[in-house]
Design a protein around this nucleic acid. Sequence first.
DNA 1: CTGAAAGCGCTTACAG
DNA 2: CTGAAAGCGCTTACAG
Lengths: 355, 355
Amino acid sequence: MADHAADGPADDGGGAGDASRPVTIAYIAESAGVSVPTVSKVINGKSGVSADTRARVEELVNRYGYRKPGASHRNNVVELVFRELKDMWAVEIIRGVERVARRHRVGVMVSEFGLHDTPAPHWDDTVSRRPSCVLSVAQLSEAERAQLKAKGIPFVVFDPTTELPDDVPFVGATNWSGGRAATRHLTELGHRRIAMISGPEDVLCCAARLDGYRSAMQAAGLPADPDLVVHAPLTREDGCAAARSLLARPDRPTAIFAANDLQALGVYQAAREAGLRIPDDLSVVGFDDLPVVAWVDPPLTTVHQPLTEMAVAATELALTLGRGEEAPQVGLELATTLTVRSSTAPPPATDARGH
Amino acid sequence: MADHAADGPADDGGGAGDASRPVTIAYIAESAGVSVPTVSKVINGKSGVSADTRARVEELVNRYGYRKPGASHRNNVVELVFRELKDMWAVEIIRGVERVARRHRVGVMVSEFGLHDTPAPHWDDTVSRRPSCVLSVAQLSEAERAQLKAKGIPFVVFDPTTELPDDVPFVGATNWSGGRAATRHLTELGHRRIAMISGPEDVLCCAARLDGYRSAMQAAGLPADPDLVVHAPLTREDGCAAARSLLARPDRPTAIFAANDLQALGVYQAAREAGLRIPDDLSVVGFDDLPVVAWVDPPLTTVHQPLTEMAVAATELALTLGRGEEAPQVGLELATTLTVRSSTAPPPATDARGH
DNA sequence: CTGAAAGCGCTTACAG
DNA sequence: CTGAAAGCGCTTACAG
């Protein structure tokens, strides 16, 4: 027969023995085969313990997830993590999170990590604050997700930019439908040469918006001209550059659908430079509905992304998971809606078929 | 001689007995003339204590600032408090605060209170989280300041909107100089009829900007025409309404200086409605330098307010005070700078004197 | 380096 | 409602 390999300290083969009553230093001491005072010394980083003993005790402290009695297991805090805090996005999200958190009497801790793939140095600070839950705007690496899982801290990904495993909770927007609605609005106005400035190909929401565009083009019986699709980073400058190249063509499009509002504002500038009037000579549609786009001239037709509502839903979900409850669903997409303003109109008469 | 009025429990006349060793429930019990278990019950909100006794014990617990042993006296957190989170302002500030806090390995807790004067219900939550310091965007009421002082939590007011007592730490911007620089820019271009849309009269920064305007007008030898100064809330809509009334006059101004960028964007719309071109027919200057104003057409000339730097300075100050150190100065104003873009030009030839 | 012993601050039955 | 007594989890000298 095999020997009794799993005849460990107190728990059965399972692992971190979480369910039972709280771990005490007496329990750690027994497991480590040392006295209570020795464990106390290790925990408080006092001297007078051999490196050997210290290592063994530390290992058990980690394994059993020991916490001092006062240190409440959970801080009443949701950690709201951004990759970049600069977008106009951020306020809308923070507001939504704050509103829900306040109602639950939970604090909102905001932190910004870089765009770099390397784990940010203060990620450990975030984790060690033992928040009720983490709400991450954009990605969490696999390692980060694993770390949170190990510590029992639930998390929700806000508007994920890449494909995630099925069990990762997320809240997003209906990007495909939004792209489709934006494009259909243009086809219904009579446009036939509709260009799309899409975002980076590996960003999920951009891929969805682009596919929505393609779907609407096809539904309108319009050819899928690959020349009408260009990719550019989601900034105003890059949107402008992309629009310049589109508008310089002899068979220039009569409408441009940009992957986000910033790019759309870049299109405005390119149009001005080219002496084209919006919407008379060129229709423009954006995506996001940032507050500012209602104030530019002409006010931008765009796909409204319900950022605040998404933040509310994400926070509710995160807090539910933080309470250890089961959530009705772990992933959801909130509906986008087309907001028609003044940057879209039928195409100029020379190009129009319908009018 | 006077009688021994201050012969209280253990401390001398001083007050909340902070310096000595930590307050225990035994000490509270002795002071209250009850047993240790009774105090324990009160603290943990258990039943089995008369209302009378409970009240007396609670009073002492508050007075001596009793804390459970585990609950560390200071959380490594700066509480960033907004009245309203919606402005584009907010992100810039949060970024600055976050950057500094991260370097000090301190968390940033963001909360939003209403505009109402009544103390927000979650203000107590904020205080009871025992942050290292509080950074308040806009006002703190006298009561709120007193509460923080009583708890020994230092605070800094960001961009104060009303006059504060001398000992209240604050960080602001040089609003008067900014208003002066904006107006001088217009007088130097040759404008003589320069209007100002100022903010509410009781908002300190607006009063300073208005005085800067007046000072520059006087320096340029221009008459102080009270008709050229109107007051309006700091929103785009109100700025637009104010501009409409200014532009409807027979002797309409050739330049408008708005108290903030939002108002200036309102002026843009009023100008469009009136068929006036900017800057050919009307010069416009704003205040704040929000990211968006570089993207509108034409890009707005405005007074740059170094929000991020202000946030950085305010956080450094707050954390310094939080460490119990003396700060070199408790109040400071950071310099504004005029950013000249394309919304300003010499006045139209018919009105100009110089050209 | 280690742990038996004393002690501290708090809580939990439980007797009055 | 109140508090003496027992107990818990942890830390602090201190003897080996």
